[in-house]
Computed example of a mutant assay.
Amino acid sequence: MTTPTAPLILFDDDHYMYVFEDQASAEAGWEMPDEFTVGFDAPARPLSMTGEPLDVRLALAGEVPEEAELRRLVADHCRGHLRGQVPPQATALADFVAALPREGR
């Protein structure tokens, strides 16, 4: 499999979204692998996480993009955690992903 394409969009067990600039920062910034529920790379391909606490690894779990699922989870995140804020309205996936807030910004 190929390397995930940045940015990486990860969701925890509370359905909170985190967007990391690259794979290294995502792996360094994620502490507990059991808190990961789902993730995607920029083309909306699914990610898997393995490892131990404070030492996680991300990899592509498949090559088929799951754009509709990514958009649904982002909308759920906005409704549940960012009340009053709407997800990006871009129709093109690249523009949608580019508009997501990044960790550390």
Rank of each mutant, 00 (worst) to 15 (best):
M1T: 15
A6E: 08
A6T: 12
P7L: 12
L8M: 09
L8K: 07
L8D: 08
L8P: 05
L10T: 07
F11G: 04
F11T: 06
F11C: 08
D13C: 14
D13P: 01
Y16M: 10
M17L: 10
Y18I: 00
V19E: 00
D22Q: 00
Q23P: 01
S25L: 04
S25K: 02
E27N: 02
A28G: 09
E31W: 01
P33Y: 01
P33H: 02
D34T: 09
E35K: 13
E35Q: 15
F36M: 06
F36A: 05
T37P: 09
G39H: 08
A42K: 12
A42E: 10
P43D: 09
P43H: 11
L47D: 05
S48C: 03
S48P: 02
T50W: 01
G51D: 11
E52K: 15
E52M: 14
P53D: 12
L54R: 13
L54V: 12
V56T: 12
V56G: 06
R57D: 13
L60G: 05
A61Q: 01
A61R: 02
A61M: 00
A61I: 02
G62V: 11
V64F: 00
P65W: 07
A68M: 08
A68W: 00
A68Q: 14
L70C: 06
R71H: 13
R71P: 15
R72L: 14
R72Y: 13
L73A: 12
L73S: 09
V74Y: 04
D76N: 09
D76F: 13
D76C: 13
H77W: 15
H77L: 07
C78K: 11
C78T: 08
H81K: 14
L82E: 14
L82K: 15
R83F: 11
V86H: 02
P87N: 06
P88Y: 07
T91S: 15
A92S: 12
A92L: 13
D95R: 14
F96C: 08
F96G: 03
R102K: 11
E103D: 06
G104T: 07
